[in-house]
């Protein structure tokens, strides 16, 4: 049996019921989008950490490789320098200094052999024309090779994670506003006649604010 008051509030209560239903649906969508953003932030963080590992692994391996090669080059360079000074000394010796020539030739043979052996233990493409070793070029090339195959930019991923995190928080704020709107609509049933309209207006304004806010967050206008 319906009371006369219930009958008189019938259409208004239908509107309120529709508003509650609408707010609930919007709230659920906003919560879903917030959850997606939070998940994306976590994924971007993971990608950033992976990039950090890639970056540091690349640095470490490049350093180990390049300085290993540079060590071999140092042996080569040492023997080559000795060879050069021996050759200069040999050229200055008189032809009749046979004993000294023999000693120097023997040493020259040894240093030349050592230089030749050492030359085969590092990549010659990093030898400059003046005989120096392009260590920075090798390091740069190893890094660039790795960058072609793997993500070495953690900062970009972390920035993206932070953006998603802010987005997730903004969705939460929108959701909270919608929750308060929902409370306002729910309270309409238990308050006096004048307060009902105040709550309806307040709830509606909050619903609009929450919805518009969520749309702006989704569109990226608030970040």
């Amino acid at each position: 049996m319906e009371t006369p008051e219930e009958r008189s509030d019938g259409p208004a209560m239908v509107i309120v019921a529709l508003l509650i239903a609408f707010t609930s649906v919007i709230g659920a969508i906003v919560a879903w989008r917030g959850s997606i953003a939070a998940d994306a932030a976590g994924d971007a963080d993971t990608a950033g950490l992976r990039a950090t590992i890639n970056l540091n692994e690349t640095r470490a391996l490049s350093s180990v490789t390049a300085y290993g090669d540079y060590g071999a080059y140092t042996q080569y360079y040492r023997e080559r320098q000795l060879t050069q000074t021996l050759e200069e000394d040999l050229a200055e010796l008189p032809e009749d200094a046979e004993d000294e020539i023999e000693v120097l030739v023997e040493e020259l043979s040894r240093t030349t052999d050592n230089a030749t052996a050492a030359q085969g233990t590092f990549p010659n493409q990093y030898l400059n024309r003046d005989g120096t070793y392009a260590l920075d070029r090798q390091l740069g090339q190893l890094f660039a090779d790795s960058a072609r195959l793997r993500d070495l930019d953690p900062a970009a991923n972390f920035a993206e994670a932070d953006r998603f995190r802010v987005k997730s928080e903004q969705f939460l704020i929108a959701f909270s506003i919608l929750a308060v709107a929902l409370v306002a609509f729910t309270l309409i049933e238990v308050v006096g006649q004048r307060a009902k309209y105040l709550l309806l207006i307040a709830g509606s304004l909050l619903l609009v604010a929450g919805t518009v806010g969520a749309v702006l967050v989704e569109m990226g206008r608030l970040s």
């Binding site: 540091n56 470490a60 490049s62 180990v64 972390f158």
Partner: peptide, 22 residues
């Protein structure tokens, strides 16, 4: 965010240590 920073710094520390030592 702080956990991510900590992990990231730990990895970087390890990398710097290895490359610096080499």
């Amino acid at each position: 965010r702080a956990g991510r920073d900590a992990n990231s710094l730990a990895v970087e520390m390890l990398g710097q240590n290895v490359s610096g030592n080499s």
